[in-house]
Computed example of a mutant assay.
Amino acid sequence: MHETAALEDATLRHLLEFAADLAAGGDSDFEVLVPFVSVPDYQTLAEGLPEWMPAPATAAWFEAQGVTKPPRHNGAFLFKIRSKDAVAAARAAGALVLRLQARSSFARARRGRLQPVGHVWVGTYPEPLPVQPPARGADVLSLKRERTMYSVMGSDRLDDALELAAPLNEGPPAPAVSGAWAAIESLLYHPGDKADPDSERNRAVAADRMAALVACSWPRAELTALSYRHQPEAEDDLRRELKRARTNAERCQVLATALADGATVALSSPSDVAACQRMAQVLTNPHKELGDVRAVFEGVLRRLYRQRNIVAHGGTTAAVALDSALRTAAPLVGAGLDRLVHAKLTLEIEPLDLVARAENSLALVGDPLGPSVTGLLG
């Protein structure tokens, strides 16, 4: 094993070394206890299962594991899971819980609902772990910013797309992938698009269009966040200029100009320092850097499309890359939907029109007569 670095001194190299060690190691067997507040009809439906543990047996398991403050429960499922580590075992158990909830939704007489406690306990692992991982990061902040979160009477295609993509953050992987791609295709594929002889280009053109849109929105999102994190010990010229800016667009332009001039941005977080370095590279050679970013985003969103095909046409939810494709694509889908919603609410621009603007900006950025990095979408 590589020598473990202290958390505050950890670098990307240490992270990659740890990941390589974890991948090279073998799988282990874990006992994962998933306690439930409510299990309807457990006497007839659960007691015959080897993994079911009634409340007294669950309490005894907690005591044997040294859990001093067990949750209130009415029994539990004890799953035997083989995985790399305790966290991966907890995530696998969370997937089983989603499957249990999906099955229970088909009951004709719904006497209550299947309700997990919210955490799982993995063998002798010292802390309980969430039964479900955090939301996948598909955020559409424009709904709150433009105060339209609860405005549903005037629904249009964008509202339909948001409804389709709703499982993306917290739903089971298969509906999340299917819904996310349905949302993208409903907005960014036109019936008049010519079929490409290469099947990969067929409806996957919607993925490429979403990638262009997100690539254009990325610099401004990064610069906006960095503009609020510049915290020098003594107030400097950049800090004063940022204070005078009245909008986020002005803050972005102030910071972009400062970075282009070689100014130092006072940042404390390593992730912010890395973001600042990325933005400096983008400002130096925007056409190349944004082209590279767009290509990466295209790959991520095309993987989402392929996983959707496996789910929808192959009828399987066991694809090896399903979870990883969803984790990487969800924030991009959220960012793209956010830009589409914002453009519709503030400028009345339709999705395909905004994508045309994004593709044109990516082609011209870096040219003296082209758009600025902070104004790629207008």
Rank of each mutant, 00 (worst) to 15 (best):
5 A>S: 12
6 A>E: 00
6 A>Q: 04
8 E>F: 01
9 D>K: 15
9 D>I: 15
9 D>H: 15
9 D>C: 15
10 A>V: 08
10 A>L: 09
10 A>I: 06
11 T>Y: 06
12 L>Q: 07
13 R>E: 15
13 R>A: 15
13 R>Y: 14
14 H>K: 04
15 L>Y: 14
16 L>V: 05
16 L>P: 05
16 L>M: 04
16 L>N: 04
17 E>V: 13
17 E>S: 11
18 F>T: 13
19 A>P: 07
20 A>W: 15
21 D>I: 09
22 L>Y: 00
22 L>T: 00
22 L>S: 01
23 A>M: 07
24 A>W: 07
25 G>A: 14
25 G>S: 14
25 G>N: 13
26 G>R: 12
27 D>F: 09
27 D>A: 13
28 S>M: 10
29 D>R: 06
29 D>G: 07
29 D>V: 09
29 D>Y: 10
30 F>C: 10
33 L>R: 11
33 L>M: 11
34 V>S: 03
35 P>T: 00
35 P>L: 01
35 P>E: 00
36 F>G: 06
36 F>V: 03
37 V>S: 05
38 S>F: 10
39 V>E: 10
39 V>M: 12
39 V>T: 09
40 P>R: 05
40 P>C: 01
40 P>M: 00
41 D>L: 14
41 D>Q: 14
41 D>G: 14
41 D>W: 14
41 D>S: 15
42 Y>N: 08
43 Q>C: 09
44 T>H: 07
44 T>K: 08
44 T>L: 05
45 L>M: 15
45 L>P: 14
45 L>C: 14
46 A>W: 01
46 A>Y: 05
46 A>E: 06
47 E>K: 14
48 G>T: 01
48 G>F: 02
49 L>F: 11
49 L>Q: 11
50 P>N: 08
50 P>T: 09
51 E>L: 08
51 E>Y: 11
52 W>E: 13
52 W>G: 12
53 M>P: 08
53 M>E: 12
54 P>S: 08
55 A>W: 02
55 A>M: 05
56 P>N: 04
57 A>Y: 14
57 A>K: 15
58 T>I: 06
58 T>P: 04
59 A>K: 02
60 A>G: 12
60 A>L: 12
61 W>L: 10
62 F>M: 07
62 F>A: 01
64 A>C: 03
66 G>Q: 12
69 K>Y: 11
69 K>V: 11
69 K>G: 10
70 P>K: 13
70 P>L: 10
70 P>N: 12
71 P>N: 08
71 P>T: 08
72 R>D: 07
72 R>K: 05
72 R>F: 03
72 R>T: 03
74 N>G: 03
74 N>Q: 07
75 G>Q: 01
75 G>I: 09
76 A>Y: 10
77 F>E: 03
78 L>Y: 00
79 F>Q: 01
80 K>L: 05
81 I>S: 13
82 R>T: 10
82 R>Q: 07
83 S>I: 02
83 S>L: 04
83 S>H: 02
83 S>W: 00
84 K>H: 02
84 K>P: 01
85 D>H: 02
85 D>L: 02
85 D>Y: 06
85 D>M: 04
85 D>S: 01
86 A>D: 03
89 A>I: 02
90 A>S: 13
91 R>E: 09
91 R>L: 04
91 R>P: 04
91 R>G: 06
92 A>E: 00
92 A>H: 00
93 A>Q: 03
93 A>C: 09
